[in-house]
Amino acid sequence: MDPRFKVSNREALMGIGLAVLNFLWWYAFAYGLGGKPVKEYQYIWGLPAWFFYSCVAGFVVFSILVYVMVKVFFKDVPFEEDTCQETKGEEK
């Protein structure tokens, strides 16, 4: 098998893993904190805590996690061996 596919397979699994984590984070905060009666809600920056953690913090945290995943774990691999020249030709 093309050795580049090993890299690709591992990265695809990491993408799925991150999506699962993302879902759990989103679900747990939203329905864990948000399922309580409204009177017991706490507020952060004026937003209900469930919404702040699930949506606002979730957005920030997973943007950072994507950055970390890509920078630390994703490998650069060359895509073209034989079509390089053709691509250069088209650039002009």
């Binding site: 690709s8 695809a12 993408g15 799925i16 948000g34 997973f62």
Partner: peptide, 28 residues
């Protein structure tokens, strides 16, 4: 409904990670 719309956050990385390099290489 904002909570529901945030399901779309994954579209930013999921498609590229899953189709990934393999799709790009095979397509070439």
């Amino acid at each position: 409904w904002v909570l529901l719309s945030m399901a779309q956050l994954v579209t930013g990385y999921f498609t590229l990670a899953v189709l990934g390099k393999k799709f790009a290489i095979v397509a070439r």
